[in-house]
């Protein structure tokens, strides 16, 4: 029996910078619990991004340097700041922004993504259930990107033929950013677009249960 030693690839902070690099100036972007919460700290020069927090804030920035305001938090209840253009509103209005099609993007964490673009990110069978806003965001945002490790803690591929965990949404995912690679669903087909530095497409094969085609982006082509 051979053991596959997975390469490390990008750190969490590097992955956040990679995702932030693909955001488009003027976008309204929801960031979900987990790795995506690092995005508001990744200010990209020349881009204004309106970060949306599901309970009812828009226009949040990184954690404050000074005293945190208990009424200014992200979806993970961590203290954040309000930038110019920020707005506060109730949770119904907040999810109207999502379901009403005003979110250009939501970035969610992922437990599993299937080769059809199904997302599972709220429940490991047998674990403690808690769904939060993930299903509303997955159903409502104009684009859904998933930010996750390529393998789970036991070394199993998270990009799978089928999700074995309960779904958050069926066929909702547009892109997956992992520590090893970037994938995009192109006409419904999972497509490898980019490998992390030092990673080759050949290395990804055994680390990815889902079937994927390869059509790599040229430099700077992602948006």
């Amino acid at each position: 029996m051979t053991t596959i030693t997975a390469p490390t690839g990008l750190s969490r902070a590097e992955l956040a910078r990679r995702v932030a690099g693909d955001l488009v100036d003027g976008w309204c972007v929801n960031v979900g619990i987990g790795a995506p919460l690092q995005l508001p700290a990744q200010a990209t020069p020349g881009k204004e991004i309106l970060y949306h927090c599901e309970h009812g804030l828009l226009g949040v920035g990184p954690a404050p340097d000074g005293e945190p305001d208990p009424d200014v938090t992200d979806a993970g209840k961590n203290p954040v700041t309000l930038l110019d253009g920020a707005a506060s509103f109730d949770s119904s209005t907040s999810f109207a922004i999502a379901r009403g099609g005003r979110l250009d993007l939501c970035v969610l964490g992922g437990l599993q993504v299937s080769e059809r673009g199904d997302l599972a990110n709220w429940l490991v069978p047998g674990g403690n259930p808690g769904v939060g806003g993930a299903m509303d965001l997955a159903a409502g945002a104009r684009r859904v990107w998933v930010m996750m490790d390529h393998l789970d803690k036991r070394g199993n591929p998270k990009l799978r033929k089928e999700c074995t965990f309960p779904l958050t949404g069926a066929g909702v995912v547009d892109r997956v950013y992992t520590n090893l690679a970037v994938f995009e669903f192109v006409d419904g087909v999972l497509t490898l677009r980019e490998c992390a530095p030092g990673i080759t497409p050949e290395q990804l094969g055994p680390l990815t249960e889902a079937t994927f085609q390869i059509d790599l982006w040229n430099q700077g082509e992602s948006e």
Partner: peptide, 15 residues
Amino acid sequence: EIELVPQGTLAERLR
């Protein structure tokens, strides 16, 4: 007993 409700649906059901 739990009634697990997606967050936006919970808000809208109250509204």
